[in-house]
């Protein structure tokens, strides 16, 4: 159900853009108005979501502990999996954000031959996830060559590395291949594995299909239909310099690509894609496990008038003594 709906939506977006690309009324809309609108919604929406998250207090530290906590000096502590200070937290966050370390721990639970539950090796999700995210980053950096003149050295270097196989003409980018393979895997596993299919929602299929659509339209544009890149660059630079010029003579596939990217980014801040910001705010990852070493006071604690036992002894000590009750003060 969710799969069909998502597929229909993505295909209608493609149809909409390719139909609009030929109509002179829709060209400025697709090329200029929508991208600027998307930029505004994306930036404001993203900040708004992060601010909303920041309203939620984290009174007690809830880091997941996957190693020995800092304890006696003769017990070796696991500084990354159970960080006790900020340096450890930074290390843990870096590994999480750059290498998806917690996904690496993913296992597969199976009821194999009878009632015994077995846990097996399962790194494919981690591998595909890592390949996809890094490829997407490289693709995004590569695209800067269209928006900027002169092209920064980092962009040139990234593109050179990405195309270093020098296969075909125009050169095949390694990340194009990796991205499509990884996203296809991520998509197929949701369809093929029954348990995953059961828990998958339109919000899971839609972004994957959108990204596949963006990748396919981009690949078609680069390797098969080919468009006038000089005109693309002129358009992209004009867009980045806020003096937009509607491109002329670029094929419909360019409009499809641009429109799909626009829709994905306007969808971004309303969806699970916000994990880009959310990963930084994961309380199970970004807090040091120092609940026992430091006192963390709940910020909304009602001020309670406490009467400690020491104060109690101060007040009733004489009477307790008279009644023959032991006093802590005297024991020490």
């Amino acid at each position: 159900m969710g799969l069909k709906a998502s597929l229909i939506i993505v295909l209608s977006l493609v149809a909409l853009a390719s139909a609009g690309a030929g109509v002179s009324f829709f060209q400025p809309l697709l090329a200029v108005v929508i991208p600027y609108m998307v930029l505004a919604v994306f930036l404001v929406g993203l900040c708004w979501r992060v601010f909303k998250w920041a309203q939620a207090p984290v009174p007690f530290r809830i880091p997941t502990t996957a190693g020995q906590q800092k304890s006696f000096s003769w017990l070796k502590a696991n500084k990354l999996d159970n960080p006790s200070n900020t340096a450890g937290v930074i290390g843990r966050m870096l590994l999480e954000i750059l290498l998806f370390r917690s996904l690496f721990r993913n296992t597969k639970a199976e009821l194999r031959k009878g009632p015994k539950l077995t846990y097996g090796w399962e790194k494919w999700l981690w591998l595909a996830g890592l390949l996809f995210h890094w490829s997407f980053l490289v693709v995004a950096i590569r695209h800067l060559r269209f928006f900027i003149q002169p092209i920064p050295a980092l962009v040139r270097f990234t593109e050179g590395l990405d195309g270093f196989l020098q296969l075909g003409l125009p050169t095949v980018y390694i990340t194009d291949v990796l991205l499509v393979l990884a996203v296809t895997y991520l998509f197929l596993r949701r369809i093929v594995i029954p348990q995953l299919r059961y828990i998958s929602l339109p919000a899971d299929y839609f972004p994957l299909l959108m990204i596949l659509g963006i990748a396919f339209s981009g690949i078609t544009m680069r390797y098969f239909l080919r468009v006038d890149l000089g005109a693309v660059k002129e358009f992209a630079v004009s867009l980045a310099m806020f003096s937009p010029k509607v491109p002329e003579g670029i094929g419909a596939v360019f409009y499809v690509h641009l429109f799909l990217v626009s829709v994905l980014f306007i969808y971004f801040s309303f969806s699970k894609l916000m994990h880009m910001g959310g990963v930084f705010l994961s309380p199970t990852r970004n807090l040091a496990n120092n609940n026992r070493a430091k006192r963390h006071i709940n910020p909304w604690n009602y001020p309670v008038d406490v009467h400690s036992y020491a104060e109690y002894e101060m007040e009733f000590g004489n009477k307790m003594k008279g009644a023959g009750l032991p006093l802590e003060k005297e024991e020490q």
Binding site: L43, L144, F147, I148, Q149, P150, P152, G230, K233, E234, V237, S238, A240, M241, F242, S243
Partner: peptide
């Protein structure tokens, strides 16, 4: 970082492109 292409060429005149 995300707005890099927007502020990178701020204040510059439009580059000469084309052939």
């Amino acid at each position: 970082l995300i707005t890099f292409p927007l502020w990178y060429s701020l204040g510059q005149s439009a580059p000469v492109l084309g052939y």
